[in-house]
């Protein structure tokens, strides 16, 4: 009896403690980040993504199955700037994984590697749902992606020195490609007349895109971030569109359409509905995602070819 119990206990302990050799496990919160990680890592790591591109990352549910992915992870790639603060911190705490806690080499905060825009000087919630560290929606921007890719290469190399050269090389190739892509579309948008570079956005989440493409955001449909439009503000939006001559209204597909559609109908704005992230599940590459995004915006601003 004692022997059986001892054997069982040993077996249990072995199951719990055994760490078989395996490829690096990378978990990313957002699909665009997962897409970058997959390409930097190449064949040396498996990459999982916690959210789908159809989900608003501000309002995800902290589903317990995500704990399992986090428990296995060697590297956690987060957007940062408190975009995931409503659901991720509790999951990371419950993951029982010291490798991915904040401040460890396995916790990769992408926002620390980009040039942040719209950093508020002062924060008060009366201003709406403001992110104190700056606007967190940089994942659209290939210039930011180039920086993130290079930093990811370094992080992966530190965790897996045997393949560090591969990670660095992949990241360098991506970085060059993203920069070229960024330049190509900057040129293309720069050729548009000024009136065709003005747009309205729903949530204040396209500032990096606006900055990259040299656009002018004339107003947001939300009066303040996270605060829904009321008729008074929508009247202001319509007035602003008419005075500025803005051509397009851009928003992620997970935002409500009612107010935007009405504004578009009254003003003739063309709607540019963009996916909230790269389609990681289907294997889409970051370049293709961004190219699609830029094309949608270009056509909305300039009119279809």
């Amino acid at each position: 009896m004692i022997r059986t119990v001892t054997l069982f206990a040993l077996g249990l302990a072995a199951t719990m403690l055994a760490v078989p050799a395996r490829a690096l496990q990378v978990v990313a919160t957002l699909p665009s980040l997962a897409t970058l990680a997959r390409e930097v890592a190449g064949p040396h790591a498996t990459v999982e993504c916690l959210l789908s591109p159809r989900q608003d990352p501000h309002y995800a549910d902290a589903r317990p199955n995500l704990i399992l992915s986090l428990n296995r992870a060697d590297l956690l790639v987060v957007n940062g700037l408190e975009l995931e603060v409503g659901w991720l911190p509790g999951l990371v705490r419950q993951a029982r994984n010291p490798k991915i806690q904040t401040g460890t080499p396995g916790y990769f905060d992408a926002s620390l590697h980009v040039l942040r825009l719209a950093v508020p000087g002062r924060v008060d919630r009366a201003m709406g749902d403001i992110h104190p560290g700056g606007n967190p929606h940089f994942h659209w921007d290939p210039r930011a992606a180039a920086l993130v890719a290079v930093a990811l290469g370094k992080s992966l190399g530190a965790l897996d020195p045997a393949h560090a050269a591969d990670y660095t090389k992949n990241a360098a190739v991506m970085s060059a490609r993203f920069k070229a892509l960024a330049h190509e579309w900057t040129q293309k948008f720069a050729a548009l007349p000024e009136a065709e570079r003005k747009l309205v956005v729903y949530h204040d989440s396209l500032v990096y895109l606006v900055d990259w493409l040299g656009l002018k955001q004339v107003i947001t449909v939300e009066p303040r971030p996270g605060i829904p439009p009321d008729p008074g503000h929508l009247a202001k939006v319509v007035g602003t569109v008419r005075t500025t001559g803005a051509k397009a209204l851009a928003q992620e597909e997970y935002y409500p359409r009612g107010a935007s559609d009405q504004v578009a109908k009254l003003t003739g704005l063309r709607m540019a509905i963009v996916p909230g992230g790269a389609n990681f599940g289907s294997g889409q590459r970051f370049d293709d995602y961004v190219r699609g995004l830029a094309k949608t915006l270009y056509e909305a601003l300039h009119g279809a070819p």
Partner: peptide
């Protein structure tokens, strides 16, 4: 306050419907 472009009553009504359709966008 907010009709720099002089919105008509019908336009204001349409906007109100748009806002209601979204049932306001907060958590």
């Amino acid at each position: 306050d907010a009709t720099p472009a002089g919105l008509s009553e019908a336009e204001l009504k349409a906007l109100a419907e748009g806002a209601a359709a979204d049932a306001s966008s907060a958590p």
